Amino acid sequence: REVFWKNILAGKSGISEVESFDTSAYSVHKGGEVKGFLHEPYVRNLNSDQIGRASRFAIAGARLALEDAGVDLEEIDRRSAGVSMGTTSGEPNQIEQFDNCYVANETEQVSPYFISSYPCHYIAGHVAAELGFMGSNMMIPTACAAGSFAIAHACEVLRKGRAGMMLAGGADSFSRITYSGFARLLAIAPDRCQPFDKNRKGMMPGEGSCILVLELLDHALERKAHIYAEVADYGLSCDAFHMTGVHPDGDGAVRAMEQALSESGLSPGEVDYISAYGTGTKSNDQHETVSAKRVFGKAAYETPISSIKSMRFNNWYKVLEM
């Protein structure tokens, strides 16, 4: 966390040449791989050989979050502690290994743990199993919006009294499948992601995990937790417009933001910062600009708006958040 924050403040990019697979067949060759990741200090109870890279990221993120929050696992009721996770691709490395064996006509080499490691819901399950969290467990695979959906779901679980503490966030591993798809769509930038820049050239795939410890305010105050922020509320929507294209007037994003403002009791003028999706494409830049102007009016020209993708440090599932 400290390294991530320091690099964000310094504007340091985590983008480098892809090393996990050969990109010579593509016109782009860079991505946000986590270099030198050691899972051993974090995966202590599960057999790490039987879980995928995204699960290892998620477990590491969960343990770091709990440590930062000052949570002692021996002092909490783990029967009411839950996990809410989001993902784009789940554990694609597992299916890639299967594909390699299938193409080489060596299916007998497929790991016996393939079925218990590939489905994306195992990521949330692995976090819970590693930590002994026996409460609500949910995986939300809504691609780039998944991490935010997971936070929203965790908030609802807490509000309804179905859990005393929730881990919420997202995890993804660098994927040849995902990289190939976006490369063929000519959607990957050659060097870096530049949202809201006239020289934008596309997005940049990456990997990593981001986990938050969520709890009700009274619970946090009782244990004297260091509180970083309050989730005022959230908004969810669907364009229901086109299979791949967003509504030209930004209707979906507008409804989500307006709902978040309404439910939280805030006015557009009270928002200090907008964290954009920011894929670095002309279509998305236009969509987010239009929707922000519709919701915030004149304030849209004064409220800072940027995207974590412009300083990507191995994290690629952020969406519009307030």
Rank of each mutant, 00 (worst) to 15 (best):
K6P: 00
R294V: 15
L266S: 12
C238Q: 12
G265I: 06
T88L: 13
T279P: 08
L186W: 00
K293R: 15
A276C: 11
D72M: 03
Y179M: 07
M311S: 14
L216S: 12
S55C: 14
I188G: 02
E33V: 03
L186F: 01
A189Y: 04
P248V: 06
L217W: 07
D218H: 10
E17P: 01
A260L: 11
A152F: 09
E302G: 04
Y234E: 13
A276E: 00
A171W: 00
M165N: 03
I123G: 05
E33P: 05
I177C: 03
Q97V: 02
S209E: 04
T107F: 09
L131T: 06
A163W: 04
G36H: 03
A65D: 08
V3F: 04
P195L: 06
E108H: 14
K318M: 15
D68S: 14
Q94F: 06
Y317S: 12
S84M: 08
E2P: 01
Q50G: 03
R294F: 12
G132D: 11
A299N: 15
K298T: 15
E230V: 05
R176S: 09
T142F: 03
S111R: 10
F57M: 09
V3W: 02
L236Q: 12
A62M: 05
M85D: 07
R176M: 12
G252Q: 07
V18R: 04
E263G: 09
L131H: 02
E75V: 07
V28M: 09
Y42T: 08
A146L: 02
K309I: 02
L167D: 08
S180Y: 03
A60C: 14
L46M: 12
N7C: 06
I8A: 09
S262C: 08
S275C: 07
D77E: 13
A154F: 08
M243F: 08
H121L: 01
P141M: 01
L186T: 00
Q286G: 04
S16Y: 01
G278C: 05
E96A: 14
Y118G: 00
L186S: 04
K298I: 12
G147A: 13
H219N: 08
C238I: 06
L221V: 06
A152Y: 07
N47Y: 03
S173N: 03
E270M: 10
G161R: 03
V157M: 09
S48Y: 01
V213T: 08
R223T: 07
F149T: 04
V71P: 06
V290L: 15
N137M: 11
V213R: 04
H126N: 15
K12G: 02
L261C: 12
G36R: 00
V43A: 03
D72V: 04
H247G: 05
H153P: 00
S117C: 06
I274P: 05
A152T: 13
G252S: 10
D218V: 05
R294L: 14
S267W: 04
L261K: 09
I177P: 00
A62P: 07
S116F: 10
E17V: 10
Q286Y: 13
L9K: 07
S291E: 14
K12D: 09
S291V: 13
G250I: 10
A229C: 13
A104L: 14
A81T: 12
V295R: 12
A69Y: 05
A163I: 05
R56S: 12
